[in-house]
Write a protein that binds this DNA or RNA. Structure first.
Lengths: 184, 184
DNA sequence: TCGTGTCGTTCGATTTGACGAACGCCCGGT
DNA sequence: ACCGGGCGTTCGTCAAATCGAACGACACGA
């Protein structure tokens, strides 16, 4: 989901913001991006509906990803102590997830801590297409991966796999891990 | 950084891919997005340089974020064993970072494993504006945070703080942690 | 077999985004 | 004061993106 809000104003603001961050003039940016000053001027004024190529070249010239130009901004200092924080997905008792950082509109990645007790394998439903799961085991041993491709991991081991196909988690001993869920 | 490659072909592919995923016809999508069939037809054919509004409405109609339409497809299964993988930033010996997953063009987050030995505090240079660091301690004890706001963390503890100001890492005992660096 | 519906493509007409030139403005050097 | 140079804006022109309508192809039912 994304805000139905027209991105025109957002883009205008983002362009000016990023340009001033880099510390260059409108004319200079236009030059680097290979655009006419007038075009950029109108874009920053909020007038206009730039083509992809135009916005793209601006992103390149500014050294920022594209997405940064069409979405609003982020965060500050926060601490969540072990065991604190919203505990999610604790369906049975063998599997608990604590949400540390929810993906903002443009940083599409959620950060979890996963706690698992030995039990029968947990089958995770497939998530929305394009999602990727990143897992780093902090302690214990876990069998994990897409159906048919499970791998056994120990402390410090890392795995990444598509989240949009059925996959399994199975703790071989009491374990916990850091999960980065990257969606869409 | 992002690929200098013209995203035109990527967009074409993404549009068709996402549309077929949703399982609707080109005409139906055009209808939902409020566009002419012809426009969409040409876009999927790879001809064209859509405006932001056009692409945006397609994203909305498809129920996917925008970014998904201007970037290449995702990953697959990958495992990096503890101690393997590219070791970075190992300036002295008290601080080593292993890159697990580099941020893709739009998923601007790098995943690291950090290993720290007790020593004098490490002062990290400020990163580019807008960056945020997320840290989950896996083992040991670490003092970490922006200058003047350091916090002591133990296993399972989580902290997030701005990466664009000077900040410190100090291991109180041999430690390791998972770091998600979220940039720009 | 014919009609009706939807599909995706192609074609001209029109809207509109991008360009280049000129403008007024402010600053620094001579 | 005068002048060059950069700034950001505004204007008319041109190319291109978008539209609407028509097309042939296919499937289904009367």
């Amino acid at each position: 989901m994304q805000q139905p809000a027209p991105p025109l104003a957002t883009i205008a603001a983002a362009l000016r913001r990023e340009r001033e961050r880099v510390g260059i003039s409108l004319a200079e940016l236009a030059r680097r991006a290979g655009l006419a000053k007038s075009t950029l001027s109108q874009l920053e004024a909020g007038a206009g509906n730039p083509s992809i190529e135009t916005l793209w070249s601006l992103g390149v010239a500014l050294g920022v990803p594209f997405s940064r130009l069409v979405e609003p901004p982020p965060t500050q200092v926060r601490v969540i102590r072990a065991g604190q924080g919203p505990r999610l997905l604790a369906d049975k008792s063998a599997y608990a997830a604590t949400l540390l950082a929810a993906g903002s509109a443009h940083a599409r990645r959620d950060l979890y801590v996963l706690e698992l007790e030995p039990s029968q394998p947990r089958e995770a439903e497939a998530h929305i297409p394009g999602s990727v799961e990143h897992l780093v085991v902090a302690a214990g041993r876990i069998m994990v991966g897409p159906a048919g491709e499970q791998v056994e991991l120990g402390p410090g081991d890392y795995i990444a796999f598509p989240g949009d196909v059925p996959h399994y988690y199975e703790a071989l001993e009491p374990s916990w891990a850091v999960l980065v869920m990257e969606h869409v």
